[in-house]
């Protein structure tokens, strides 16, 4: 089916933007030095990446009249609600499970607090 040039360009740009963020997230996952830093890369760039791709599909399918766009919107809302909860829980479990910060870290107030509060 034919779509206007502007929509075509917009969808392509959104898709490429999404891919860029997805790849950056994965790159960070491989490159950064401890779990916590890696989570910064994934839980964020990935959310943004998916948002880009979903927006592209929202515009495209909505123009073709195949979808109202509400479900795509729902995916974005859902991801933005759950991604931080998941990240928070993994970080917490990792720290309590004894995964330490990379040595180059500067401050660790949490360790002090855990030591004093568990007396």
């Amino acid at each position: 089916m034919e779509v206007p040039y502007i929509l075509d360009a917009l969808v392509s740009v959104l898709l490429l933007l999404g891919l860029f963020f997805l790849l950056t997230g994965t790159f960070g996952l491989l490159r950064l030095r401890d779990v916590y830093a890696r989570m910064h890369a994934t839980s964020k760039s990935t959310t943004f990446g998916v948002a880009g791709v979903v927006l592209a599909s929202l515009f495209y399918l909505r123009y073709l009249g195949l979808s109202s766009g509400l479900k795509e919107f729902l995916i974005i809302v859902f991801l933005f609600l759950t991604a931080p909860v998941g990240a928070h829980m993994i970080a917490r479990a990792a720290y309590r499970g004894g995964v330490s910060l990379w040595q180059g870290g500067v401050v660790d107030d949490f360790k002090k607090w855990l030591e004093t509060s568990q007396e």
Partner: peptide
């Protein structure tokens, strides 16, 4: 979100990692 995303992208793609991470109360 936009500003911070850009910052993190720059930090991840920088040729050498010059980050100092830590947990702050």
């Amino acid at each position: 979100l936009l500003i911070a995303n850009w910052t993190v992208v720059r930090q991840v793609l920088a040729p050498e990692l010059k980050i100092q991470s830590g947990i702050v109360a």
